[in-house]
Amino acid sequence: MLLIMFYIAAIIAVVSTGAVIFSRNPVYSVIYLIISLFAVAMVFYTLGAPFLAMAEIIIYAGAIMVLFLFVVMMLNLGQNRKDEDLQAASAKALVLPLTFTTILAMLTVLALAGAIPAPHAVGTSSAALGKALFDKHFLGVKLAAFILLVGSIGGMHLGRASSTPDTKETRI
């Protein structure tokens, strides 16, 4: 039963991720990405990590993708991106994606062959996860927090009202 659910979720994830790339309309791309994240959450759930599944939905599907959708709606990107897409697919643009894909594929093959030892499991309850994060991986959590802080300060700096004297300060 769980295995069937796992495979259904996995297939949905792969198909909808493909649809993100191939759909013409940017709003549909965002929606396919949401479906994909949802399916990944389902995969986590069937693998026995309910906390991670919920976190995935709350953070990615519920918060970040809403902002994506917000921006796409505000920019009102046209539906005729055909020419642009073809231009973007030049050889230069393919270098980075191909590099990452190769690395990921190599890692997958190595992991499946058993060359990489499975990481030590920390348990799936929220308490065990919290302990692991704030004990063993404390430095990583701190670094992530710093990156987020830098990002939000940068956003505030870019978004603040211009301080030059001739522009009126605008209130929303």
Binding site: M54, I58, V66
Partner: peptide, 17 residues
């Protein structure tokens, strides 16, 4: 559910869509 609170928060955040 042992993550019932998170389930509620997840669904309420999806209601925005």
């Amino acid at each position: 559910m042992n993550v019932g609170v998170l389930f509620f928060l997840a669904l309420s955040s999806l209601g925005v869509y």
